[in-house]
Simulated scan of single mutants.
Amino acid sequence: MIITHDLTKRYGRTVAVDSVELEVREGDRYGLLGPNGSGKTTLVRMLLGLVFATRGEIEVLGQPVPKRIQDVLPSIGALVEGPGAYPHLSGRVNLTLFDAAGAGGRRKDRRQRVGDALERVGLAGIDRRPVRNYSLGMRQRLGLAGALLRQPKLLILDEPTNGLDPRGIREIRDLLDELNREGTTVFLSSHLLAEIDAFCTRVGVMDRGRLVLQEDLSSLRAPTGRVTVGSPTPERVVALLDGRVEHRDGEVLTVRHDDPGALNAELVAAGVTVTAIATERRTLEQVVLDATTTSSDRVEAAG
């Protein structure tokens, strides 16, 4: 669905995107992570032909971009850097104008398309209200509604849950899940680990303009070679395992072991009560911290 080769964007001496080799496959739920300023939005804008690359190649839906961007745009829904709208007009009128500009299909079906899009994002009840009176979360929903007018094969979203409360984030996640199950490939960029962790199946991590990691999320969550054990007698676990306990937090212990079943059998055979036992796996936070070296808001003292 999306392939880039040696994709690079420079602004003067600043390298915003550096030799990125991106691969988004059909049916993916691909999450692009990275701190603010890591190059995510610049990369997204190049995928949509909004910014020209300094060097490299882009292929979207089998076509070169930006050369053939007009051929693929009808099959793409996008929300980048917040939705644009006429503030004095309602959400329905804004979507109608957007549709008339070429986002949707036949004119006679326009009213239905707009209504369906508003309904899917949860704005059907307030579509007569001027957009200037919308909250930030409502504006995000309106932008997503505009992306859905195309009935897209590919959704490209930049921070799609910005401004939404927890319930709104869950609703948008459920909507994206439904669209993906219906056949839409979803590519979203975010700096929110929880958002990516809850929805995506494939992850890319940006750092200083480079794509430093790209992998299926299931592979990244590999076992660490440790097992967490819960026991009301943690001191007995420590004594029995003879140095294999690496950490203890109350009744929860981290044990160096790669087989929770065998460890559980060993403890039970020794008369130790086990209340919980599980293989320890890397969290997405650990994966990102291991892959990146920068923080977008850290400022070091000069000299």
Rank of each mutant, 00 (worst) to 15 (best):
E195S: 06
R221N: 07
E215D: 04
A198M: 10
D174M: 07
T201M: 12
R221K: 12
D216T: 15
L220K: 01
R202A: 12
V212L: 02
E178A: 10
G209F: 05
D242M: 08
T201Y: 12
L192R: 12
E246W: 13
L241S: 01
D174S: 13
V203T: 07
T185F: 07
R210H: 07
V205D: 07
T184Q: 11
T201S: 11
R208D: 14
S218D: 11
E178I: 12
E182K: 11
L193C: 04
V203Y: 02
G204R: 09
P234V: 01
V205G: 02
Q214E: 09
D207L: 10
E178S: 11
S189A: 09
R210F: 14
G183A: 09
S189N: 13
E235G: 13
E215M: 06
G225W: 03
H191K: 10
S218K: 09
T224Y: 13
P232Y: 06
E195F: 05
L213Q: 11
R181K: 04
A194C: 11
S219K: 14
V186A: 02
N180F: 08
G230C: 00
R202I: 10
G204V: 15
T224E: 05
V227W: 03
E215Q: 05
F199P: 00
V186G: 02
A194D: 08
S218A: 14
D177M: 12
G209D: 05
E178Q: 14
L211P: 07
G243E: 10
G230S: 05
L175R: 04
E195M: 11
T184F: 14
R202P: 13
A222V: 11
G243W: 12
L213I: 12
D207E: 06
R181M: 06
L220H: 05
G225R: 03
L188F: 11
R226E: 13
L175W: 00
V203F: 01
L240P: 07
D177W: 14
V227Q: 06
A222G: 07
R221L: 02
D216S: 15
F199C: 13
T201C: 05
T224P: 10
R210K: 06
A222I: 09
D197I: 15
T185P: 01
L179D: 01
H191Q: 04
L179A: 00
R181W: 03
P223R: 06
D216I: 13
A239S: 14
F187D: 00
G243M: 14
F187G: 04
G183L: 05
R210P: 10
D216C: 15
G204H: 11
R202K: 14
L175Q: 09
V229K: 03
A194K: 08
V212N: 01
T224N: 08
D177H: 12
L217R: 12
V203H: 03
E246G: 14
S218W: 15
C200D: 07
G183H: 11
P234N: 00
G204N: 15
E178V: 15
T233Q: 08
L211V: 10
A222S: 09
T233R: 07
R208T: 15
R244I: 08
E195N: 04
G230A: 06
V212M: 09
E235K: 10
L217K: 14
V237K: 10
T228V: 14
P234G: 02
V227E: 10
H191D: 00
L175N: 00
R210E: 12
N180Q: 01
L176T: 05
S218Q: 12
L240T: 10
R226I: 13
F187V: 01
E235H: 02
V205T: 01
